[in-house]
Amino acid sequence: MRAVFKREFKGLFHDITGFLFIAAHAFFVGLFLIDHCMKGGRSDAEGILSKMAIVMAVLLPILLLKIKNGVRKDTESFMRTLPISAAGEVIGKYLATLAVIFISVILTLLGFAFIGFFGDINYLSVMSALLIYFLFSMLFASIYLFITVSLKGFNASAIVCYAVSVVIFAFGFFGVLLKKVGGGILESIARRVSPFLRVDEVVYGIFDITTVAYFLVLTVLFLLLGIFVADRRRANARGGVRS
């Protein structure tokens, strides 16, 4: 796991991928902060995290697809000669992705601190919103990792990653629309299930511990699914199990 983490994390900065991700993330944070806080005259910097959740959902596949792109059939056979378990491989890749996300989140926090020079910031709200934003990113990273591990082709992985993010976003959007026409049980379900709406709730001051549990449970679930798929693939490459 440590070896995979080290290799993948370094690999993300071998070319511009890691830098591009952090720069694009920082750019949107700056852009939204200017729009929300500077132009809007507000100090609730965490308000931008609803929009940033969409940005994160769009940017994250770049990292996972870069990691996938480094894996070819022959490098897979190289990995199989080493004592690295399927779980170690999947979790190593996941942690490398999380490390880059963490850098971006820290930069976001610095951006918020900068806004603090111009107005009062409620750091408790900021930290809780950033925590949920990080958990949201963890969930999407695990979903995308599961997709890239499951699918063989690079293009297919890219298409499915973005298709899934659109479906998840549409589900949340559907919930917002339902609220406008009176809500009901469907709106309540959408609000509970959509990760985007979960982030919205926290950003607007409703911090619920079930939201933390929701993100953690789903993240672990998708990670386990990814490990299961990677393990099955290895077993197939190894020639199955003894009958």
């Binding site: 290799r7 690999g11 071998h14 070319d15 480094g70 070819r72 059939k73 022959d74 490098t75 897979e76 056979s77 190289f78 000669t81």
Partner: peptide, 11 residues
């Protein structure tokens, strides 16, 4: 050491 070692090209 297999016959065709697929090292990571950018390492």
């Amino acid at each position: 050491a297999p016959e065709d070692f697929g090292f990571f090209g950018d390492d």
